[in-house]
């Protein structure tokens, strides 16, 4: 076809328009919860990057497909066969190599983010969480006090030391983004830094039996003073009752 160039130009324009439309739809459908930890920032940017690529590739394939459906539909009375094209090695190499570059780029980006969000800060606070069927116990190292509410200081790096009494569980606060399985027989770790004071929900997201649905604990992110006060007074009083 001599006038393929015209079609390719049309497709190019359509793909660009479509990319924005698809991204807008994805953005409307995929509503992330509040970002309330320092980890959420780089994670959310990576997700945005993914969504742009999804929007672009989706548009690329769908626009070309739909364009072809209109352009190359069989007209009434046409009995000829399609064009005899067997393939094109240059194209095949191109669309093997380009995606390869893209995925490696995303791999690199993700590596940088992952190193960043899992690195060990100097001043981290350790909090123990123990999951059981179907609830949570929280405590601080060097303290016997146990609470059922997870109280955390704002803007302080936290390391959760996670253990399980029985089966697999998972520690997840959607607003903090990160999650970690809890495995009986070992301690797993999760690092994050809450940035916004407020109330959240800790939910178990690894199927743990009958009442998995209800394995939820309240989470409260408070100022650092309040945090100290909570563990010094409130809990001690509660425990001594």
């Amino acid at each position: 076809m001599q006038n393929n160039t015209r079609h390719f130009a049309a497709i190019g324009v359509l793909v660009v328009i479509f990319t924005f439309v698809v991204f807008w739809i994805l953005d409307a459908v995929l509503k992330f919860p509040l970002a309330a930890s320092t980890q959420a920032g780089p994670i959310d940017s990576l997700i945005q990057g993914h969504l742009w690529i999804i929007a672009f590739l989706f548009s690329l394939v769908v626009v070309i497909a739909i364009y072809s459906l209109f352009l190359f539909r069989r007209r009434e009375g046409d009995t000829e066969e399609g064009q005899y094209i067997h393939g094109n090695t240059t194209l095949e190499i191109l669309w093997t190599a380009l995606p390869m570059v893209v995925v490696i780029a995303f791999g690199y980006w993700s590596t940088v983010v992952l190193v960043d969000i899992t690195q060990r800060p100097d001043n981290e606070i350790i909090v123990n969480a123990e999951g059981y069927q179907w609830g949570w116990n929280f405590s601080l190292p060097n303290s016997d006090a146990v609470t059922q509410e997870l109280v955390l200081p704002v803007d302080t790096p936290i390391r959760m030391d996670l253990t399980s009494k029985d089966v697999l569980h998972n520690f997840w606060v959607p607003e903090f983004r990160v999650k970690q399985d809890i495995v009986p027989g070992r301690t797993t770790y999760l690092r994050f830094t809450p940035t916004i004071e407020g109330e959240y929900r800790l939910i178990c997201s690894e199927l743990c039996g009958l009442n998995h649905t209800g394995m939820i604990a309240p989470v409260r992110v408070v100022s650092q003073d309040e945090f100290a006060a909570f563990w010094n007074q409130d809990v001690q009083t509660a425990s001594s009752k």
Binding site: V61, I64, Q83, N88, E92, T96
Partner: peptide
């Protein structure tokens, strides 16, 4: 993603220039 992409693009190549019926 790479071999999967090859399939998609090859399918598009198959559609292009055909006499499509639905």
């Amino acid at each position: 993603a790479v071999p999967t992409g090859v399939k998609f693009f090859s399918w598009l190549g198959t559609l292009w220039g055909g006499k499509l019926t639905f």
